[in-house]
Write a protein that binds this DNA or RNA. Structure first.
Length: 558
RNA sequence: GGUCGGUUGGUCUAAUGGAAGUGACACAAGAUUUUCAUUCUUGUAAUGCGAGUUCGAUUCUCGCACCGACUACCA
C-alpha cells in the first residue's frame, strides 16, 4: 500500500475550498424547537411528474412534523441534471398544497409564482449547495475516507461483465477498486491530463459483518455492511443522492427521514456515511410501495403503465383532493377509517397519526375504495360546495358543460340539492366528471330526445298516458297531489293505482303507477333512471316539462 | 448471481402464545323506494408451504416458495 499524504491530496482535489466543516455547523445551528418536535422533509426530484408516492410520503412527513409542532420543509433534489424539467418545482409545490401538504420551510413560491427559498437552512435546491458538499468531501479526503477515481464508463462496464462471468457481486470493490490505493503521482498525472474524476467513498465494511438497525416502520432490520466504494461526487462536482442526503439532512437537522423502501438496500451505505462524517443518524421511516392488481398478481404502480399514479389523473377525473387524502390516510393508518366514521366532519388533522400503525408491506391502491370514500364525502358536501367544485373542474376539463352548468347558478344548485342534506343523502357520484352524466338532462343541450321507454308497452299506451298527465299536472302541486294525479292517469288506463296492488295480482292489470311515472320520467329526463322526478320537474318548470312531453308525444306518434 | 424487505378472505386491515372480527371496500341474495342512488338485513370468503420450540403457533425460530425493491457518475 502506498503511503499517501491525504492532506496534500485534499488540497489538490479541492484547492478552492477554504471553509471548514465547523463553519458549516455554525452556519446551520441546531433548531430551537419544543421537546419531541420532529423535523422532516420531502425531497423529490423535479421531473415534472408529481405522483401518489409524493402525497403518501408528504402526508406522512407532514403529520409527523405538525403533530409534534415540528418543521416540515421541502428540498429539491436536482442533482441529476438529465432528469430535471423546467418549472417542475413550481408545479410540485402547487399540486401538493392542494393536498394539504404545506411546507414551513424550504423551496417555496414567491408572489410571482417563481421558486425561491424560505428559511435559514438553505439553499434548498441541491444544485446550489455544491460548495457545502465540497467542504465535507474535502474533509473525508483529508481523513482518508474518500479518494478520486478516474475510471471511464467503459472500464466500469468491463468490470461489471467480469463480475457477471465470475459470478461475483457487482460494484466497485476489491480488485476492481482500481483507484482506491493509488499514489499521489498517479492521481496528479490524470488530473494534469485533464481527466474527469469522481470522488468515491473508501469503504471499510465487509459483507461478512451483519448488524441490526431500527426502522420506524419495518421494525428491526438485518443489515449487511456495505463494502462498495460508492460515488460521493459525480464528475460534474454534484453529489450523488447518498452524499447529499447525509450532508443535507444533517445540516438541516432532519430528525425523521420518510422515504420509499426502495432505499432500504442503500441504508448500510448511509449508516456508514453518517458515521464517517461524524453525524448523528436520523430516524428512518421506510414506506412500502403502492401496488396495483395486474391480473392475479400485485405489482408496484408504474409510471409508464399506470396513469392513476400521476396526480394529474385525479385532477382530470375530478376527484376532490380531500377525498384522495382521506383514502391515502386509510392506507397509511388503518384505524383512520373508523375514526372518520365517528368524526365525519372533523378535519383530517384531528386524527392522531401513528407511524407504528403503518404497514411495512406495500398496499394495493384500490380505486374502487377511493371511489367509495369519495362518494361518501361528496354526499356530505353542500350543494354550494359541489357547485363551486364542479364549476372549477369543468372550466378546465369540460368547457362545454361548464357553459351550461354555470349559466344559471341558482338552477344548477337547486338540481344539486336534490336528495342532499339529512342523514341519508344521495350518493350519486364519486368524481366531478360523473356529474354531467348524472344531471346533464336538466339542460336542453344534453337532454336525450331519443330516450327509450320501458318495453312491453306500445306507443299508443305511452302517448295516452303522457297526454293525460300533461293535461292535469301543475308545478305548484304538492308532491302527494302530484303523485295522486299520476295514480289517476294509471287508473284511467286500467293500470293499478298502487304498486302493491299490481304485485299481488299481476295478471289483472297491464301495468301500475310506477310504469306511468316511468313514461313521464323518460319523456322529461330522457332516461329510465333519475333523481326524484317530482323535484326534477319542479326545478325544470312547467314550460320546459310541457315542451319536452309534447315533443315526445309527437315523436312517438311518428 | 448477491443483498434487503414483504406474505391474515378478491382488496385494505383488526387481534392474539389459548375459539382469527357486530371493521371497511368489492361481490351475491333479500327488503325498502314510483325509477335510480340510498338505507336496512343476510351471505360467500383468509393466517403461502414445511419443520422446530410449546400442553397449545396465525403469532416465536429455521428452511422453502412466491411477490417486491435494490444491485448507476438516477433518485
Amino acid at each position: 500500500m502506498t503511503n499517501i499524504d491525504y492532506t496534500q491530496l485534499a488540497e489538490i482535489l479541492f484547492p478552492n475550498v477554504k471553509a471548514t466543516p465547523e463553519e458549516m455547523e455554525a452556519r446551520f445551528p441546531a433548531r430551537d424547537l419544543p421537546e419531541g418536535a420532529c423535523v422532516s422533509r420531502l425531497a423529490p426530484s423535479p421531473t415534472g411528474f408529481v405522483h401518489l408516492g409524493n402525497v403518501v410520503q408528504g402526508l406522512t412527513s407532514e403529520r409527523i412534523c405538525h403533530q409534534t409542532n415540528g418543521v416540515l420543509f421541502l428540498r429539491i433534489e436536482d442533482t441529476d441534471a438529465k432528469r430535471e424539467v423546467p418549472g417542475a418545482s413550481e408545479i410540485l409545490i402547487e399540486m401538493l398544497s392542494h393536498y394539504g401538504i404545506i411546507f414551513d420551510e424550504g423551496a417555496a413560491l414567491n408572489e410571482e409564482g417563481k421558486i425561491c427559498d424560505k428559511g435559514n437552512y438553505g439553499p434548498y435546491k441541491q444544485s446550489q449547495r455544491a460548495g457545502i458538499y465540497h467542504v465535507f468531501a474535502k474533509k473525508l479526503v483529508q481523513e482518508g475516507k474518500a479518494y478520486p477515481c478516474f475510471c471511464t464508463e467503459d472500464e466500469l462496464e468491463q468490470f461489471r461483465k467480469e463480475q457477471e462471468d465470475e459470478k461475483a457481486n457487482f460494484g466497485y470493490y476489491g480488485k476492481w477498486a482500481k483507484w482506491r490505493d493509488r499514489s499521489i503521482e498517479d492521481i496528479k498525472k490524470e488530473l494534469d491530463a485533464g481527466k474527469e474524476w469522481v470522488l468515491r467513498f473508501r469503504s471499510t465494511g465487509s459483507i461478512e459483518n451483519k448488524f441490526k438497525f431500527d426502522d420506524l416502520v419495518k421494525g428491526t432490520v438485518d443489515v449487511t455492511e456495505n463494502d462498495i466504494d460508492h460515488v460521493l461526487l459525480k464528475s460534474d462536482g454534484i453529489p450523488t443522492y447518498h452524499f447529499a442526503h447525509a450532508v443535507d439532512d444533517h445540516l438541516m437537522h432532519t430528525t425523521h427521514v420518510v422515504r420509499g423502501d426502495e432505499w432500504l438496500p442503500s441504508l448500510p451505505f448511509h449508516i456508514q456515511l453518517f458515521k464517517a462524517l461524524g453525524f448523528k443518524m436520523p430516524k428512518y421511516v421506510h414506506i412500502g410501495p403502492l401496488m396495483k392488481m395486474d391480473g392475479t398478481s400485485k405489482r408496484k404502480l408504474s409510471k409508464r403503465k399506470d396513469p392513476e399514479l400521476a396526480l394529474s389523473y385525479y385532477k382530470q377525473e375530478g376527484y376532490p383532493t380531500e377525498c384522495v387524502v382521506d383514502y391515502i390516510m386509510t392506507i397509511l393508518n388503518s384505524n383512520y377509517e373508523d375514526w372518520r366514521r365517528a368524526n365525519p366532519d372533523a378535519p383530517m388533522t384531528d386524527f392522531k397519526f401513528s407511524v407504528k400503525k403503518m404497514n411495512p408491506a406495500g398496499s394495493l391502491f384500490d380505486i374502487a375504495k377511493l371511489c367509495d370514500v369519495s362518494k361518501n364525502m361528496i354526499s356530505r358536501m353542500s350543494a354550494e360546495t359541489v357547485y363551486n367544485s364542479v364549476a372549477e373542474w369543468s372550466k378546465e376539463f369540460d368547457p362545454e358543460f361548464n357553459t351550461e352548468f354555470t349559466k344559471d347558478s341558482e338552477f344548477t344548485k337547486a338540481v344539486l340539492s336534490i336528495g342532499r342534506g339529512g342523514n341519508k343523502p344521495r350518493k350519486d357520484f364519486a368524481v366531478w366528471s360523473e356529474v354531467k352524466d348524472y344531471m346533464g338532462f336538466m339542460f336542453d343541450k344534453y337532454y336525450n330526445v331519443e330516450g327509450t321507454y320501458p318495453e312491453n308497452f306500445d306507443n299508443d299506451t305511452i302517448v295516452s298516458a303522457l297526454e293525460k298527465f300533461a293535461a292535469t299536472f301543475d308545478t305548484s302541486d304538492e308532491q302527494n297531489v302530484w303523485f295522486d294525479k299520476m295514480k289517476d292517469v294509471a287508473e284511467s288506463l286500467g293500470f293499478a293505482r298502487e304498486t302493491k296492488e299490481y304485485k299481488a295480482n299481476p295478471n289483472a292489470f297491464p301495468g301500475h303507477v310506477g310504469d306511468i311515472s316511468a313514461f313521464v320520467r323518460v319523456a322529461v329526463t330522457g332516461k329510465q333512471n333519475s333523481p326524484d322526478l317530482y323535484a326534477v320537474m319542479s326545478i325544470l318548470g312547467k314550460d320546459s316539462v310541457n315542451n319536452r312531453i309534447k315533443a315526445q308525444i309527437e315523436r312517438l306518434r311518428g
